[in-house]
């Protein structure tokens, strides 16, 4: 499936995102919300991005598109098919070559009918009808306003906006919640088809089970960074096939694997000091883990992991 001869569709190197915050008075501070992410997605590939709420998944998506708020500072490198994603390039690619499936209906204009919204700047009425057909959306849905949509309909409308674009890179931010299992599966199949047609898909999701079925690789996010990126097969096998303690804990927390909850909570971005962000919750934690300035991603058994003690 993947085409290894050419550059990956998306290649992210050492990406960090900070927010400039204005506290009371004029004092400025910086809040680092994404640190040192390396991630690539090749044509034909679905990479699932999984991680708990607030781990920075949406921010990563918005960084790739260049639609972060004005007070965000981005460092590192992002390349689209080998071309550096400068703000000008991003502006050029948005909506045509890179498409976003946003996370909620609040991303639709409340006072505009959804038909024209799905068409956007570049789509036509015919394309919109075709996409609606594909998602089993009635033709009349085009005449509705966002507030008249059910959760499942809204979700499919959001996905339609990306499918209509014919973009080479699709970034889907939690496209499945609120969908009944069948439609969720249909939706995922559509992403699979798109990938098989040669597109690259970043699939941000809480639903690891669905990722198991349709993704090629899974990137686990924790506190604003990737802790493990590995082929989906490793996640299906679980346990020792995985490399990072957090990935294993996530695996054990799945209903079919014993439903064991992970004690503790993810640290807030502002409270991160050096060392491993997972240290407070890790049973393998050693002094090395907390004193290291940063822990780099390393390749272990064909996957990447950010842990001093990974084997």
């Amino acid at each position: 499936m993947a085409n290894h001869d050419t550059a990956p569709v998306l290649d992210i190197q050492n990406l960090s995102v900070k927010f400039r915050m204005y506290d009371k008075g004029l004092r400025q501070s910086e809040l680092q919300v994404i640190s040192d992410i390396n991630l690539n997605i090749k044509a034909g590939e679905i990479v699932a991005v999984a991680g708990s709420s607030g781990s920075g998944k949406s921010l990563l998506a918005h960084a790739v598109l260049g639609i972060l708020p004005k007070n965000a500072m981005v460092s590192g490198s992002m390349k689209y098919c080998g071309t550096e994603l400068t703000p000008a390039v991003q502006a050029d690619l948005r909506g045509r070559d890179i498409a976003l499936v946003p996370q909620s209906v609040s991303y639709l204009d409340p006072l505009k009918k959804v038909g024209p919204q799905v068409q956007g700047l570049y789509g036509t009425k015919e394309q919109q009808s075709q996409v609606f057909n594909r998602f089993e959306l009635a033709e009349e849905t085009a005449e509705k306003y966002p507030f008249q949509l059910s959760g499942g309909m809204a979700r499919r409308i959001l996905v339609s906006t990306a499918v209509i674009s014919n973009a080479k890179l699709i970034i889907a931010d939690e496209p499945t919640p609120g969908l009944n299992p069948e439609i969720a599966e249909t939706t995922m199949k559509i992403f699979r088809d798109l990938a098989d047609e040669g597109k690259a898909v970043m699939l941000i999701t809480h639903d690891i089970d669905l990722a198991f079925l349709f993704a090629d690789r899974i990137a686990v996010f924790y506190a604003g960074t990737t802790v493990e990126i590995a082929p989906v097969a490793d996640f299906i096998r679980g346990g020792d096939a995985l490399r990072h303690p957090y990935s294993r804990a996530l695996w054990n927390a799945l209903p079919q694997n014993g439903f064991k909850p992970i004690a503790g909570g993810q640290p807030y971005a502002g409270n991160l000091q050096g060392g491993c962000p997972y240290a407070a919750r890790c049973s393998h934690c050693s002094t090395e883990c907390t004193t290291a300035k940063t822990i780099k991603m390393q390749t272990v058994r064909g996957g990447e992991v950010r842990c001093c003690h990974a084997t």
């Binding site: 598109l65 909506g95 976003l100 204009d109």
Partner: peptide, 20 residues
Amino acid sequence: DYAVFAAARGETKWQIVYHH
């Protein structure tokens, strides 16, 4: 959010002002 999404779909600032 909907202005952010419009930008994500390639609309410029004035297009966003005009359309939304």
